[in-house]
């Protein structure tokens, strides 16, 4: 870290005499403000990663102890729905990336359309998730202590020891991930509204970019959850 020698950034010519509206007083330049915001966001993202990491550890440990259980239990998950959801979420990542691409080119309308598309896809993800959850609840595949599988291919799980652990981990991980999706939807909605009000341009689009980063992280978590829970 000591090798990083960036000195306080020099202001660009335009900054000093007339400050842009978005520039806060304690920053020297837009550049410095943008860089700070972005570093802050990356730091926030690693806190998110570490937040999820504990659940990944729990998964790894229980899978290591009871591999057969995890194989048996994961077979009851609906791979089709999982795959569709993966593609939905990847597409939403693309649309967010495109919205940043367009705002950088000052094409505000296209940016807003893409943000809208992201919202729709995120909503779609949650709807599919809802159907997955309800089908599990119907068969008593609750987390942990309430685990009481019955009906369909869930019935066989009644005799599999530690199957409830799999579902605990499944619900906790996907639940907290789902919570992040909902928070992401709220933030994307807010950014879209602000874009609509004309707050952003190629000069200043930090909130769009940061929201994009957050959304990609939500996507990355799912990229790992999908094979871990559904496939292996």
């Amino acid at each position: 870290m000591a090798t990083d020698t960036d000195i306080a950034p020099a202001p660009t010519e335009t900054d000093h005499h007339d400050h842009p509206a978005h520039l806060q007083h304690h920053f020297v330049s837009s550049e410095q403000q943008f860089d700070s915001a972005k570093l802050g966001m990356w730091l926030f993202l690693i806190t998110e990663i570490l937040l999820f990491s504990a659940m990944f550890v729990a998964y790894a440990v229980y899978r290591q102890w009871h591999p057969e259980t995890f194989v048996a239990a994961s077979e009851t998950l609906n791979v089709t729905m999982g795959t569709i959801n993966t593609i939905v979420l990847l597409t939403s990542s693309l649309t967010v990336a495109l919205s940043i691409h367009y705002i950088q080119k000052d094409e505000v309308k296209k940016c807003i359309y893409n943000l809208g598309a992201t919202l729709v896809l995120a909503g779609g993800f949650m709807v599919i998730k809802y159907f997955e959850y309800t089908s599990k609840f119907e068969h008593g595949a609750y987390p942990g202590g309430m685990f009481d599988p019955h009906g369909g291919h869930y019935a066989q799980l009644a005799d599999v020891p530690f199957a409830s652990q799999f579902f605990s981990i499944y619900f906790v991980m996907t639940g907290i991930h789902g919570l992040h999706v909902i928070i992401g939807m709220a933030v994307i909605g807010w950014v879209a509204v602000r874009a609509w009000m004309g707050s952003f341009s190629s000069e200043y689009y930090t909130p769009v970019e940061l929201t994009g980063l957050y959304w990609h992280l939500v996507d990355i978590v799912w990229i790992f959850l999908f094979p871990m829970l559904y496939l292996i």
Binding site: P143, G144, M146, Q165
Partner: peptide, 18 residues
């Protein structure tokens, strides 16, 4: 520690058995 506390709360509330 945040997620650990959340899991402890879920352990009490939902009996997740971790």
């Amino acid at each position: 520690i945040g997620i650990t506390m959340v899991l402890l709360i879920l352990e009490q509330v939902l009996q997740i058995g971790i």
